[in-house]
Design a protein around this nucleic acid. Structure first.
Lengths: 281, 281
DNA sequence: CACCGGGTGTAACGAACGTTACGGGCAGCT
DNA sequence: AGCTGCCCGTAACGTTCGTTACACCCGGTG
């Protein structure tokens, strides 16, 4: 399979990459970009694709320890053949003795995401999506790190409908924002771990003014939770040694999928945004 | 029938088989027995495996309508490439009966993340982590959406070491930034899909000044790729209907795990940051 | 400034390639 | 028996291949 399961040859190329001269790097890029099919063509067309001369390719394979291009090709072919065979028994759960730090971290992310996606219920997502597409205006807000998720939601959602903004950071600007918030508006708040008192206050005030509140957090007893109409709680145990922004982004994308589904004409809008980007850029 | 899914080429061979003379049948048998790998070797070795002469093979391909062996090989290669792609697509989009939109999206995210985490090689992560912790100064930069990942890396990395900044957006500010960039500095660039010409230019110039460049992208032939010392390529096919920021964040967190591991005293620094946050807030 | 080492492209080489031309061989038909 | 059509291998052809040799350019060093 393409990059999902790379063989040792692709790894060898990847690892050696940074130590290679420019021309040979170009070859490696072509090789990995269309792996393994680029390696099945002739050395000359390979070199042409990389815009270098054939000898440069020859030198690459020599440097990496193969006995010429034919040798390299043979290795690629047998690896592909072998990988094809083993695709059936791809239920190998890794299992190798001592997983490295990275493997541990990767596993944490994998299972954490799985838990995150499993814990959000579909009716809630549907309701949130409808709310976001049906509201008069949408504001997103987040804590020190979660604000990146808030920003992400704002940007993507703005591609689907008008009237989406970030809640500004400074108190005065927040106050000016709050003045106009009313019953037809929706606030999406991201609040995690240490929780932001400012976010809780903002959410509480917005709710008092009749706005709808969607809260993405890590616990049902988070400070702003009482003021939320819809609450998406990510499992806390998913947290690794580092803040798991991955999960926040993931559920945000889930919400966005729902929003896109609820907006039939969104493709046109996205096209127009793109055209305008070009015009203004 | 070793291959799970045979393409039309294999079918063509099978159907024509009975109408073929003995020698050409032998060729077809070899072809189908080790499909499609036998077709990737030379015509001569193919003929040898079938215990016939090379011209017999040539005649087979002419008879079946291809314009020579090279033409046949090209067809085989592109078919294999296409089949590979569609296999991944099917793998990504899931196949169970009628899953809801959200379940589909969730599966996409799950398997996409799995693919992403599987495709990044550990030595590269290690090298990047060491680079990020050992450099004089680190700058992060990203495109319209990827900049969120760049921002995330900058914020988290700043908790582990001093001298981490975002590259500013406006050209003049970028120019002022560039002036001071030199050999002991490192640039981390995120560049995806539509690719940002500005990012590519910045990276190219930085590299010219001797800075190290780490590029996180979705293809080995991305525009800034030629200027990167370390390249982390996320599988392109993993992309769903929406931009997969989840994956970018995930590999960023993987890198951060490596950085944290390379900095023993980072806990103290984080504590101090927290205390200062309280003091200044 | 001269020097040096590494990286690269151009040009030329020999080898292997796929193809074509030709002739022997064999079955089936007249 | 002779003829005919098809199949197939041998031999030679021209092409394309991967490799090597060599000269140029560039950045770093004494």
């Amino acid at each position: 399979m393409r990059p999902v399961a790379e063989g040792p040859i692709a790894e060898r190329l990847t690892e050696a990459y940074s130590a290679l001269p420019e021309g040979e790097r170009a070859i490696v890029r072509v090789l990995l970009d269309d792996y393994p099919y680029a390696a099945l063509e002739s050395l000359r067309s390979l070199a042409a694709r990389a815009s270098v001369s054939p000898p440069t390719a020859t030198r690459l394979f020599a440097r990496l320890g193969w006995d010429g291009y034919a040798d390299f090709q043979k290795a690629i072919r047998s690896e592909a053949r072998e990988e094809d065979r083993s695709r059936l028994r791809q239920f190998v759960s890794g299992g190798s003795a001592a997983p490295s730090t990275f493997e541990q971290a990767a596993d944490t992310l994998r299972s954490g995401l799985s838990g995150t996606l499993g814990s959000v219920s579909e009716p809630v997502l549907t309701a949130v999506a409808e709310l976001l597409m049906g509201s008069g205006a949408v504001w997103t807000i987040g804590g020190p790190l979660s604000e990146l998720a808030a920003e992400y939601l704002a940007r993507q959602l703005a591609g689907l409908r008008p009237g989406v903004s970030r809640v500004p950071g400074p108190p005065q600007a927040r106050a000016r924002t709050m003045v106009d918030i009313g019953p037809r508006h929706t606030i999406v708040a991201y609040d995690f771990r240490r929780y932001s008192a400012a976010t809780a206050r903002f959410v509480a005030e917005a709710r008092k003014r009749g706005a709808h509140v969607v809260l993405v957090t890590d616990a049902w007893d988070a400070p702003p939770a009482p003021h939320a109409d819809h609450l998406i709680a990510l499992p806390r145990e998913a947290a690794g040694p580092i803040a798991p922004l991955t999960y926040e982004i993931a559920v945000t994308e889930l919400v966005l999928v729902g929003c896109a589904g609820a907006a039939p004409g969104s493709a046109d809008r996205l096209d127009e945004v793109e055209a305008l980007t070009h015009t203004l850029g």
